[in-house]
Amino acid sequence: MKEIDIIPSTLKEAVERISELPGYGEKSARRLAVNLLDMPRGEAIQLIKTLLDMLERIHPCSECGLYTEEEICSICSSEERDRSVICVVEETFDAFAIEKTGKFNGLYHVIGGRLSPLEGITAEDLNIDKLVKRVETNNIKEVILATNPTVEGEATASYIYNLLKDKNILVSRIAYGLPFGAVLENADDFTLSKALEHKTII
């Protein structure tokens, strides 16, 4: 008996597209697609319109790389931030997590990932050159390396440290109030606060 493919082609394509996103496998992609189909039609359409609006309006800050609706984000444009300190993070939501603690008043720099030879991600793929230029052209006194405490995050922090160690600035590493292998975005406020307070000098 010939097997019949009962999955509609558009649903199949949607699942394939979603599963191409980092962190989504086929099962989670299928669950997201089905959840959209199960939503009241008006709510699903509103969600899709919101996502389209986000794609139109959100972009990386031209200075630090944080997602923003403006050319320069509110942190980079603020007169109240300590402009002599830069906290380096892998992704925007890592910075958002640190910002929630209220323990950091400097600037951020989003490098857009971490070094991962197995995935073919090299320094050229990351926003590291611009970090070095910011340090060289601004009155930066300290760079805090807040990459995630994973093998790749440590390798990335080490790589950046080697680029900055002769720049006559203090280079520190976020402390391990975070368990090794954890992700900043998922950490609670207290743990992140302690990690910032007990950062170590490299």
Rank of each mutant, 00 (worst) to 15 (best):
G23N: 01
E70A: 12
A187Y: 00
S78T: 04
L107C: 13
D189E: 15
I7D: 07
S9D: 14
R41A: 11
C64W: 14
I174W: 13
L52G: 11
P149W: 06
S84A: 09
E43V: 05
R83A: 10
L126N: 05
K2A: 08
S77C: 06
L37R: 01
I75W: 14
K27F: 02
Y176V: 09
K103I: 05
L36R: 09
I174M: 15
L51R: 15
N35I: 11
K141Q: 09
G25F: 11
N148R: 06
K2V: 04
L21Q: 02
A175E: 04
E26D: 02
F190S: 15
F190A: 15
V132C: 04
N162A: 05
D125E: 13
T101P: 11
C87G: 03
G112I: 10
E90Y: 02
T122A: 01
Q46A: 02
E136A: 09
S84T: 12
K2S: 10
N139C: 07
V110E: 04
I98K: 03
T50L: 13
T101G: 01
I169V: 05
Y176E: 14
Y108G: 10
I121E: 06
S158P: 02
S158G: 01
T137H: 10
L51A: 11
A182R: 04
G120P: 02
N127Q: 04
I128V: 07
G65I: 11
A97N: 09
N168L: 08
E91F: 09
E136L: 14
A157G: 04
L11N: 04
E63I: 13
I72N: 04
F190D: 15
V171C: 10
E70W: 04
P8A: 07
V132A: 05
M1V: 15
T191W: 09
L21C: 02
R173S: 01
K27E: 03
A146C: 02
P179D: 09
Q46V: 05
I174L: 15
A33E: 13
G112E: 04
E16W: 10
E124N: 10
Y176A: 09
T10Q: 10
